[in-house]
Design a protein around this nucleic acid. Structure first.
Length: 271
DNA sequence: GCCACTGTTAGCAT
DNA sequence: CATGCTAACAGTGG
């Protein structure tokens, strides 16, 4: 479930290790991973990786020649480094080998929801899938978030999950943010007082910063690109804690489906 | 063995 | 603009 903190952790780890490497060969083991022409993949051969960064939940690998690999990890996508000679397992969807030998970078994705696009443009952030994203929650000020909130309506839970509102928040962090803000997931943005909007904005930054610092949350099978678990799962205060006491007021945490997504919240201290 | 559930997003209907 | 449903997929747990 890579959300912003997990993708950020992966991006930092990959950047450290992959920038400067020259791509030798990209092999697509699961053709449907790539949206677009397979011929585009071959254009990457011989290109050097210049930068790797995150935007929302997407990972952008920028190479020479204004060519970019744009990954969305969806539910179960993960990267890892492996010696070329090691056989791939059945969930490996892509392998990228580099000039000069050394380990190759592999993309695994058990549920095959992951998506890869090739962007050929000097300004990838303005290209189709990235253009539609809202601002980065950690790059935008509290008052700005409050202002964005005032322009929207609808339930807070759905709004936080809306990537066009803020980019990168998923189900886990949406629930944790709302709990930290003491706001009920069914509250609407138009019902917020100024101080509630401010509380929500600061909770967005507080939770996401803490999660990035902890290397993300490793529930199920998330690991970063170096195979390391995150630790933020031990600090979840509502997510996955149905029936357990709220860590603020002691009332049992409730689970309810909101907008088709399981939502955990404290019915007593989230108003 | 069956079914519910898992979390993300596109696409479609309302 | 908002919401709700489904499909895409595979594994886990009851």
């Amino acid at each position: 479930m890579p959300e912003l903190p997990e993708v950020e952790t992966i991006a930092v780890g990959l950047r450290r290790r992959a920038v400067g490497l020259r791509i030798d060969e990209i092999r697509l083991l699961w053709p449907k991973l790539l949206r677009g022409a397979a011929a585009d993949l071959r254009r990457l051969r011989g290109k050097r990786i210049l930068d790797i960064r995150r935007r929302g939940k997407m990972l952008l690998v920028s190479c020479e020649g204004d060519l970019h690999l744009l990954f969305h990890l969806k539910m179960t996508g993960q990267f890892h480094w492996t010696e070329r000679a090691v056989p791939t397992d059945k969930h490996t969807r892509l392998r990228i080998a580099f000039r000069g030998g050394g380990p190759e970078l592999r993309f695994r994705d058990v549920r095959k929801f992951g998506v890869l696009r090739i962007l050929a443009t000097p300004r990838p952030l303005e290209a189709a899938p990235l253009r539609a994203l809202g601002p980065e929650p950690l790059a935008v000020s509290g008052p700005e978030i409050a202002r964005l909130l005032a322009r929207r309506k609808g339930r807070l839970k759905s709004l936080l999950l809306n990537q066009a509102f803020l980019a990168g928040i998923g189900n886990i962090y949406a629930d944790e943010i709302l709990h930290a803000a003491g706001l009920h997931p069914l509250r609407t943005s138009s019902s917020l007082t100024t101080s509630e909007a401010r509380r929500l904005a600061s909770s967005v930054a507080k939770i996401l910063n803490a999660a990035v610092e902890a290397g993300g949350s490793s529930i199920r099978d998330y690991k970063d690109a170096d195979g390391v678990d995150g630790s933020f799962q031990s600090r979840h205060r509502v997510y996955g804690r149905k029936g357990e006491p709220c860590l603020r007021c002691g009332a049992p945490v409730e689970r309810r489906v909101i907008g088709g997504r399981s939502s955990f919240f404290c019915p007593k201290c989230q108003k």
